[in-house]
Amino acid sequence: MTKKPVVAILGATGAVGQEFIRLIEEREFPYSKLKLLASIRSAGKKMMVNGTEYTIEEARPESFDGVDIGLFAGGSISKTLGPEAAKRGCIVIDNSSAFRMDPAVPLVVPEVNPEDIAWHNGIIANPNCSTIIMLMALKPIHDVSPIKKIIVSTYQAVSGAGKEGIDELKEETEAYLKGEEMHPKILPSKSLHKHYPIAFNLIPHIDVFLENDYTKEEMKMVNETHKILHDTAIAISPTTVRVPVFRSHAESIQVETEAALTVEAVRRAIDQFPGAQVLDNPDKMEYPMPLYTSEKYDCYVGRIRKDIYNPKAINLWVSGDQIRKGAALNALQIAEYMLAHDMIK
């Protein structure tokens, strides 16, 4: 990567924005200038990046003048500032859901469909975290034999609800252990009129319910998978569940393929896929767990086994860090890919 772009991070003070900064430092992402942007509430705060102190600026359309890459942490502001940034020549890599299903916007997991980056018009969308982690396990299988059907249940960390979700789990756990009353305000969704504690609990409800009785989060997995794999014929049945885990998602998946595959072929395909690792030793009680996949770059896959009744189905378990691969890392990898392929002018 010879070019050093001007980079702006929108939402620099939130959980994903903070992860952008950590990853830029860890991966030595090149930049000639860095701008940290947030809402007016955070403007004026100081933050250190690579030993240099930066002042948080209020995010405005003109903030993106002269910026090459905009790393958007997500949120409703993307809808307004995304097009404004793109208009000014900035390539926006956006973590919100605002542009994911826009047919003019590529929806990209770099290991899965990097070729789609080429047709962007200034905005590239990061998929939903649960979709990314699922496809890191399923794309290598899809490459061996096309996927026909997916049944998936997610076990999603509170980091998916942002810093507020993480704080809520901490506060509720402390209150519960002290015998005090818990006061949920965030989950299952901040926008809803009713909230439930997540400490020592599971909530089978993420985002709002739609007319078909699936949640918006569940339908994201359906629609985004179809778009990323360019195949709307794949049958997908999702159930998304919030669990009292801080930052790493897990998913139980049954995948049916066109041809019957052996467990050995599936293991080999996943292990050879960049960003995925097999951790599957039942005899040694080794399998992926959120506590141990947190802070990791890769997604880990285990419990790989043939379905008992369907000869063309494989059951597996995957876990990956929601804030990293499910959000900030995926977006930064898109930027790295574009730099490596000379796609930043």
Rank of each mutant, 00 (worst) to 15 (best):
F20A: 11
R22T: 06
E25H: 01
R27W: 14
S32H: 10
L34E: 11
A38G: 09
S39Y: 06
R41Y: 14
R41F: 13
M47A: 15
R60E: 10
P61D: 01
S63W: 00
D68G: 00
I69Q: 01
G74I: 09
T80W: 08
E84W: 02
V92D: 09
V92Y: 08
D94H: 04
P103D: 10
P106F: 07
P106R: 06
E111Q: 14
E111W: 09
P114W: 03
W119M: 10
M136H: 07
M136E: 05
A137V: 01
I141E: 04
H142A: 13
I150E: 03
Y155W: 12
V158A: 04
A161V: 03
E164N: 15
I166A: 15
E168M: 01
K170T: 09
E174S: 05
A175K: 11
L177D: 07
I186E: 03
L192Q: 06
F200Q: 12
P204S: 14
H205I: 08
D207C: 10
K216V: 10
K220W: 12
K227G: 00
I228C: 02
H230L: 11
H230P: 07
I236N: 01
V245S: 10
E251H: 14
I253E: 03
A260V: 03
T262W: 07
A265Y: 09
V266W: 05
R267K: 13
I270Q: 04
I270L: 10
F273T: 01
P274C: 04
G275E: 07
V278W: 05
D280A: 09
D280K: 11
N281C: 13
D283E: 15
Y287G: 11
P290F: 10
Y292G: 08
Y297H: 14
V301L: 11
I308G: 13
A313S: 08
G320V: 02
R324H: 08
N330G: 00
E336N: 09
